[in-house]
Design a protein around this nucleic acid. Structure first.
Lengths: 127, 127
DNA sequence: ATGAGCTATATGCACTACACATTTAGGGGG
DNA sequence: CCCCCTAAATGTGTAGTGCATATAGCTCAT
């Protein structure tokens, strides 16, 4: 388990085949914030805990949160902690909820494509 | 239907949310070539016909075919056509077949992640 | 016979999300 | 005092892609 970033991931050297979904990180962050308000550092762990991503980059998390805020899908607020540095806590906006439904459609399409691939592969192997 | 590239796609302006799978094109090309030998120009249409991708870039197709060849997963051979220019026909290698199984695993993982996302989303909405 | 359109391959260029690393800073414990 | 944890942010390089353009052989209508 990754001790460096406490992200729960294994940071194993990339498999020869990986097929990262571009933008999926942003969609996941939006989803997690929609469930309940949160901040970067723990959202990183949530990604793992909910089976959304295997390993994530903390830098990418912060950048995507900012990007979501710039787009008006989430809003942030500084919250000082009783112990440790301040946290920038995010919560979703109504625009963000709308966006989430668009992500849902996009991911359904992705799944259709994957299913097409897998069934085609099975048919090829069995022939 | 796209007349410019004859790719069967609609080339609609990108939705605000798209979640393209990086490397998926290469996996699809490998799969199609595994089914039966083929060449760039028609593989582009096959991507659409088999529901693997909605719209594709012919340039990306050729580049990925070359990349697959450089990696030794497919091999090519010039084949002169009775009508029209020559075709570079590809067929898969044993290394390519092995690679295809790795792609399968990667895509199964992708589908798990998508399913995690969708179920989490449903739970959030229903609450 | 010539130009338009199709088939076919290939390269140029710019963009962007991401991987990996580093920086800054507050706080607690040995 | 140093080390580690929490927390946010930036810097840099890159790979896959989108869009455009170049080249060339062949067919067919005007």
């Amino acid at each position: 388990m990754c001790a460096k970033h406490s992200c729960g991931g294994h940071h194993s050297k990339d498999h020869p085949c990986n097929c990262k979904m571009r933008g999926f990180l942003q969609a996941c962050l939006l989803l997690l914030v929609a469930r309940s308000e949160g901040y970067g550092y723990t959202l990183l762990q949530d990604l793992n805990n909910f089976g959304l991503m295997q390993q994530s980059d903390i830098g990418a998390v912060y950048r995507n949160l900012r990007s979501l805020e710039d787009a008006g899908h989430i809003v942030s607020e500084w919250q000082d902690s009783e112990s440790g540095p301040e946290k920038r806590v995010y919560r979703i906006t109504s625009a963000g909820r709308h966006r989430l439904l668009q992500w849902k459609e996009a991911l359904l399409e992705n799944r259709r494509q994957i299913d097409s691939f897998l069934t085609l592969l099975e048919n090829s192997v069995s022939q």
